[in-house]
Structure formats: structure tokens, C-alpha cells
Design a protein around this nucleic acid. Structure first.
Lengths: 124, 124
DNA sequence: CAGTATCCCTCCGGATACTG
DNA sequence: CAGTATCCGGAGGGATACTG
């Protein structure tokens, strides 16, 4: 019963928790979409332009799934014509550590790959 | 030029870094596999037993991809018959923040969902 | 044991067109 | 604008059998 020793049990629990997180954030566009909304609310078409190349079908689907998990909120303004915006919920902020750690690691990993290739052909 | 303000540029950079990370860790089994190896080196068959239901084809593929990214190391021992083990590299430790944040969030999110459903029918 | 080789199928996601 | 409807290809991944 130490502290963070990995017994088989805690290991499996950890795997399952990670799987849960990955499930909610699965798909090609969910995290990019969330990051795009970190600047503030956007309308459907604006998100499309922001995430170049996402089709309306995909965007609609990803938005719906994120809404179901309380990670974004859809707001309807009864202007003429109607205006609809999407914004991050406060619960979404709990994802920040994930986004930060992924972003940090991705950045460093890319740098690492570049340096590796640069030193490769020289062969000291 | 403040600090962490999200301009369009840093936003895109962040999206790309996150995408890079997700790319390396993509697939159904990579993170579970890494977590399974956090207890120490394992042999092929042992990993299979640890990650119930992964087929040898998938395991082989995921191991190879992780090895190419320097995240695990394959060691050959010339016993008879030959023994092969897989273990995490020291570079793999850099993934810890990702695994931790994903695990933490997944755990809390599941708890949240359970509580939500529990309070749902009561309607205070 | 430590994998490879095939077959097969689901479903993710793109392209395109259409609606209120 | 804010989406939905349809069609479709290809990658991801499972089942099974086989090899050194």
C-alpha cells in the first residue's frame, strides 16, 4: 500500500481512465476544435474557416459530441437571421492540463526529430 | 506580445503540436501498452496477456511504431530459446505528464457522469 | 515463444448536393 | 448562415492460420 507503486490493479485502473479520456476526445477534430474556441465564441462558419478543411458534416458531429459531454455550449441568438455561437464551458477548463501536456510534448518531440535527422548523415 | 495570450498564430502552433502528439500516440493500444510496461519489462506474450484481447498483429504493429519513436526498446537475449523483452526508454518518461493528465481527467469525468445520472431522476 | 500472413469488415471521415 | 442527407473510399483493426 505504498503510494504510487504500480500494482496490477492501479495499472488497470489507470489504463481505463486513460481510455475514458481518449474516448471523449476521440476523432480527428475534437482537440483542434477546442483549441480554436479558446479565443472566444465562434459561429459555425467561423469555426469551419478556422479549422481549414473540416466538412460541415464532421464539424456538426464533433460539436454535438462535445456538447453532450458538457465541453462546449451552443447558444442561439434570435436575431434575423438567427445567430448561433459555440463556446467552451467552464468545465472545459479542466481539459487544460491535457491540452498543455500534449502541446508541450508534441512541440518538443518535433524538435527532437529534426535534430536527430540533422545529426544523422554526419555520423561523427 | 504578452505571454500566453492566444493570437491566431500561437493557436495554430498549438493545434499542430497537439496533432503531432496525437499522431505519435494514435491507435487503440499505444497508451495502454505504455502503461502496462510501466511496471517493468515484459515479453511479447506477457504483454498480450496484460492487455487482454490485443491480437499479435496489432501488438507487433504498435510495438514497432513506438520503437521507431524511441518510446520503447526491444531487447534480445540469446538464451535458448531466444528471449525478447520490451521496456520503456528514458525518453518515454517525458510522456508522464500526458498520461497523468489523461488519467486524472478520465477518472474525474467518469465520476462526474455517474453523479450526474444519479442526481438526474431525483430532481431536487 | 515471438511473431508474420491473409482475409474480412466496420466505421471514420471526405466530397458533394441539398434544406430551412 | 447553419446545418442535414447521401454516397463512398480507405484505414484501422479483429479473427484465424501459419512460420522459425
Amino acid at each position: 500500500m505504498d503510494e504510487e507503486i504500480h500494482t496490477g490493479e492501479t495499472c488497470n485502473a489507470r489504463i481505463n481512465s486513460v481510455k475514458d479520456a481518449l474516448y471523449v476526445l476521440s476523432g480527428k477534430w475534437k482537440l483542434p476544435l477546442i483549441i480554436a474556441l479558446m479565443n472566444g465564441p465562434l459561429r459555425f462558419k467561423e469555426i469551419q474557416r478556422s479549422l481549414t478543411d473540416i466538412t460541415p458534416k464532421m464539424l456538426s458531429k464533433e460539436l454535438r459530441e462535445l456538447e453532450l459531454n458538457d465541453l462546449i455550449e451552443r447558444k442561439v441568438f434570435h436575431t434575423v437571421p438567427v445567430t448561433i455561437t459555440y463556446e467552451l464551458t467552464s468545465y472545459n477548463k479542466t481539459l487544460l492540463p491535457i491540452i498543455k501536456s500534449l502541446g508541450d510534448w508534441g512541440k518538443k518531440h518535433r524538435k527532437r526529430l529534426v535534430e536527430e535527422r540533422r545529426s544523422d548523415p554526419i555520423k561523427v
